[in-house]
Structures are given as structure tokens and as C-alpha cells.
Design a protein around this nucleic acid. Structure first.
Lengths: 118, 118
DNA sequence: TCACCATTTCAAATTTATTTGAAATAACTT
DNA sequence: AAGTTATTTCAAATAAATTTGAAATGGTGA
């Protein structure tokens, strides 16, 4: 591949990095890519992002999350999105009497710091 | 809302933060949430993540990106994914003779640092 | 136990994202 | 100008994510 016709400066840069083989080796494997993209996918919806940001401000039960989102979301819809965040490991829910209180995980806290930079 | 029946510790914490109103005010608006989630959505696919990581290692033309991905992607598919990254502002392409060389933007570089933490 | 509230689950309908293959551009070579 | 290579565009097909509404679950308190 490196010997086919490609821009000269690129070829040189590639070779100084061990060629295509060298570059490929630095990239994460299937599992790591899959895990990371699952987290990003959980963050890829404005509603979910807002939910995460909210519980980072303050752990909340589902009904208060709903209140924050402004009434335009059904319970089942909300539950679906909460689950996506949970499955991605961004939040956890703990039962307290009738309610389930959601709070961010370590990963969830990281993620919002990160979101701020983008 | 704050006066309906919810767990006591939660109510107190909320009130110390200016109530639901206070919490809502700290959350980003529609535009900001939308922009951030678009970036996350671009990162939410393993193939795209790999493309971004690759061009961060080394600016590359499409054909070399294709090589890195291991031949299992068609040109049009690859082009589609590259476009998503471009639309999200994570990479830019610059023409050099016959080729278009893709490299990360500032945002793209940030994003990969971030991915490492997740 | 019964009725009630908070939340989740399920399957069907809908929307959005991705894949495919063929055709279009764009720049280089002859 | 015609041919070749790199890359993109387009529309149709497929697949995946989201929304909906109804029904289920699980805890609480009379």
C-alpha cells in the first residue's frame, strides 16, 4: 500500500511512524472501540444529555427528572432514555421507598466534564 | 412540584440549590445540547471512532483510511462516515493533487483525548 | 388484602441512521 | 480530448433507534 502513488509528504510521514502497520497497531481493538462508542451513543441524544446533566447537578427521582424536562415526555419514553444512560454505565438508580433516585457514576461525571469542552 | 411527596433528603438538597427552578437554570439550552449531542452522535460508531483516531495519529487520504479499516468498507460507505465526522466539525479535508487529506480539527483532537478517559 | 403511586416492560408504529450499488465530479496522465 | 484514479453524490433498500400506549411490577399505606 505504501508504495502505491499517494502524496509524497504523507508517505514520508507514514513511514516515519512505522508505515500503515505501525499506525494500525496504535489504534484500539474492536472491544475498546465498541465500549467507547456505546458511551458516546448514550450521550448522542439531547434529552439524555440533559438528564445526565441534571442528575450531576442533583440526584433525582424519575418524577423530578420529568419535571425538569418540562412535561413533554411520557413516562415510558423517559424510562427508555434513563435505561440507555444506565446501560452505558453513566448513571445508577437506587431505590428509596417508592422512588428510584438516579445519580451519576464516576463515568457519568467524567462525561459531563468532557461535554463542557466540546 | 417540590411540595409534592418526594424523598425528604432529595427535597432538602433541591431546595438548597434554588429548587427545581434553580437546577433547571444551570442546564444548557436547546442549541448547546443539540450541538454537543451531534458531536457525540458522530463519535457513536466504532468505525467513525477508528477513522478519527487514525487521522489524529496521521493525516490521511481516503484510500489510506480505507486501508487502515481493512478492506471491509466500500468507498461510498467510507465517504458517508467521513462526512459525518466532517459535519460534526471533528475533521477537515484538504485537497492535495488527486487526493483529499483528512486531518483532525481542534475539536477532533479534544474528542480523542476525551475518549481515552471513558 | 386492597387500592394507589412510581416506575418499568412490551410490542407495534414511526422515525432516523446506515448500507448498497450505480452514476457523477474532479484532478491528473497520456 | 479521452482515459484513469480518487472521491463524492444519489436514491432505494435495510437496519437500528425512538416513540407510543397499554399492561405489568413493586413498594406503601389504609
Amino acid at each position: 500500500m505504501l508504495d502505491s502513488i499517494i502524496p509524497d509528504p504523507i508517505r514520508e510521514q507514514c513511514e516515519s511512524k512505522g508505515g500503515m502497520k505501525g499506525i494500525k497497531k496504535k489504534l484500539p481493538g474492536k472491544k475498546e472501540l465498541g465500549d467507547q462508542s456505546q458511551v458516546f451513543q448514550a450521550l448522542s441524544d439531547p434529552l439524555r444529555l440533559k438528564i445526565l446533566l441534571a442528575v450531576v447537578e442533583q440526584p433525582l427521582c424519575v418524577c423530578l427528572i420529568k419535571d425538569i424536562l418540562g412535561g413533554k415526555v411520557s413516562d415510558s419514553k423517559l424510562s427508555y432514555h434513563i435505561n440507555k444512560l444506565k446501560d452505558a454505565g453513566l448513571i445508577v438508580g437506587e431505590r428509596q421507598a417508592s422512588w428510584i433516585i438516579y445519580s451519576p457514576t464516576k463515568l457519568g461525571e467524567e462525561a459531563v466534564k468532557v461535554a463542557g469542552k466540546l
